[in-house]
């Protein structure tokens, strides 16, 4: 259960940069990013009074609003290639792992990986390269990249509390 209760006035101060950082990681056009940023905070203020901070994390809630707003933007523009289909519309299934503690756990596990495995995981899961693109970047064969990927996942699974 989250311990810190945040007021409406503090929301912008605490989350403006995080919201913009996320938007800019998906949308390169500055004008579009600023429009979306405003839209996100409009939604946040509209829904704030109905959000129960004692039952869920403010951070995860705002992240979800931001993510969905970006998704709607791409859908409106019919830019299907930008929509990461496999993380959309999955409801609350992953909400429980989206917190600072799990990110720290991921950081611990990544630090312990050999550099090659760590780079592969970051390039594939953060930067968004396909495994074929990762193979090219890392000067490995595609089959070897898949092997290294599986090895990295196994190592991470062993070191983290999630599966």
């Amino acid at each position: 259960m989250p311990s810190k209760v945040i007021g409406k006035e503090e929301l912008y101060i605490e989350y403006a940069d995080k919201v913009m950082g996320y938007i800019r990681s998906k949308i390169t056009n500055q004008a579009d990013a600023e429009d979306l940023h405003s839209t996100v905070f409009l939604k946040i203020y509209q829904k704030f009074d109905t959000f129960d901070q004692t039952k869920a994390s403010v951070s995860t809630w705002i992240y979800t609003i931001t993510k969905n707003t970006v998704t709607d933007f791409f859908r409106t523009r019919h830019v299907h290639s930008e929509i990461e289909e496999d993380i959309l519309d999955e409801g609350d299934e992953y909400q429980g792992i989206l917190d600072e503690e799990t990110l720290n756990e991921l950081a611990d596990a990544l630090e312990k990986l050999p550099q090659r495995e760590r780079d592969l995981i970051i390039l594939h899961y953060y930067t968004g390269l396909t495994l074929k693109e990762v193979a090219v970047k890392m000067s490995m064969s595609y089959s070897n990249t898949k092997l290294v990927h599986n090895k990295a996942l196994m190592l991470l699974r062993n070191r983290m509390d999630i599966d």
Partner: peptide
């Protein structure tokens, strides 16, 4: 595991964990 990582790294783009940011920037 694979889907969990995708969600976590997407959340990292929002939350900006400093240790992860450092490793990501280096890579």
């Amino acid at each position: 595991m694979s889907k969990n990582l995708k969600h976590l790294f997407d959340f990292q783009k929002f939350e900006g964990n400093s240790r992860l940011s450092s490793m990501i920037a280096e890579t």
